[in-house]
Design a protein around this nucleic acid. Structure first.
Lengths: 142, 142
DNA sequence: ATCAAACCTGTAGTCACTACAGGTTCAAGC
DNA sequence: GCTTGAACCTGTAGTGACTACAGGTTTGAT
């Protein structure tokens, strides 16, 4: 159990929090503005004072974002966690929907890549003022 | 060779162009504003009058966008085409750089999917107030 | 006290659109 | 010709997720 003095030594400025979490200062303020992060206490001079719990929350947010969850999805997950009595099923539902989105996006990109690779392969990159890529994409005169 | 009267019958309003190309009216105006599309002639009442050549250009733009080229990449390609004496190599360079971006993006998404699938698989979606997903993503108390 | 770095709030910009608001034009129907 | 609704116009602002200032204040070292 930390003593009050020891707890006070764990206080972080926004710059320190930024460094510890790899999250941009301005992004941290953005997250506060949109409600993902609670407004922290301030110094007498108006500077934000973050506790360890703030840091842990921000790490969670960043991990979710890195995994591609949208801000809204992160918000839903945080609401579940904040409520303190979420079910594992609710979390899994959000996660699996996101997984589905990822799969669809990958399939989409693969199709694009395949199409583009086919078009590009028809071009040997010469100096001729014609190009199969342009010829494919630019409609002919009717 | 179309007669002047026949050429005049090929004139499209912006709504007609939107329908023929599947490109939103407001997006067409946006493309004009950012210079991808040239400003077309106007009717006496100020309405835009698009020729067939405008339509072909817009189809090209839409195809490139659908393939994931950024607006700037489309702009580069259009500059090449507009110059009229581009080399196939220049076009291929833009295209292959885009292909590389696509490949990187796919690899990135696959990694995310794999990570997330692993995390999600640890969750059987029950009613317990604990969740391996949250446990993985939310830092523990130090 | 001085000074540079860190911080603050507010505003605006990025990218590629998308959605109005308020007004004008067009064309069909009477 | 008049009416009316649809289509069009310009200008502005919003979307999502940041990111970058400007101009001012606070902090901490010297």
């Amino acid at each position: 159990m930390m003593s009050p003095a020891a707890a006070r030594s764990a206080v972080l400025s926004i710059g320190a929090l930024s460094q510890r979490t790899g999250c941009n200062i301005e992004t941290i303020r953005y997250y506060e503005r949109i409600g993902l992060m609670p407004p922290p206490p301030r110094t007498a001079g108006g500077h934000r004072s973050y506790a360890k719990s703030h840091e842990r929350r921000l790490v969670f947010i960043r991990r979710c974002r890195e995994l591609g969850f949208s801000i809204e999805e992160v918000r839903v997950l945080l609401d579940l966690v904040d409520g303190g009595h979420y079910s594992c099923g609710e979390v899994k539902a959000v996660t699996d929907r996101h997984l589905e989105d990822l799969r669809a996006k990958i399939a989409d990109l693969k199709k694009l890549q395949s199409t583009l690779a086919t078009i590009s392969a028809a071009c040997n990159g010469g100096q001729v003022p014609e190009c199969p890529i342009i010829d494919t994409l630019y409609p002919n005169t009717d």
